[in-house]
């Protein structure tokens, strides 16, 4: 199981970035083992279509789900096409939202 969380910094205690398409980092984590990998979001500085680029990236990383603050309509369409589940959260750190995911609270 691999979850992509939009994050403001590249560690587990970073706050979840409210934006999906233009978040600074994606933390790709396994909620069971809490092992993770951090990647800068290639969509962050896109002139347009940032959400699509970010979604494409998440799909290419074979993530099963995305946790972010907000996911725009284009990104949502792209994530659906890539069969990635989408969860939105209003606040929290990456660690907290992954715990919540694991405990079925999202």
């Amino acid at each position: 199981m691999k979850i992509a969380v939009s994050a403001r910094e590249n560690n587990l205690d970073a706050l979840v970035d409210p934006r999906f398409g233009r978040c600074r980092y994606f933390i790709l984590a396994d909620p069971e083992t809490m092992s993770f990998e951090t990647c800068p979001n290639p969509g962050a500085d896109a002139a347009g279509g940032a959400g699509i680029k970010a979604a494409q990236f998440v799909v290419s990383k074979k993530a099963d789900a995305v946790i972010a603050g907000e996911v725009g309509p284009h990104a949502l369409q792209a994530l659906e096409a890539g069969r990635v589940k989408v969860y939105t959260v209003s606040s929290g750190t990456v660690r907290e939202v992954l715990d919540n995911y694991k405990n079925g609270k999202l």
Partner: peptide, 14 residues
């Protein structure tokens, strides 16, 4: 402009 996205078995145009 990221107006076209390709997935394993699908292409999306925006």
């Amino acid at each position: 402009y990221n107006a076209i996205a390709v997935f394993e078995r699908n292409v999306l145009v925006f």
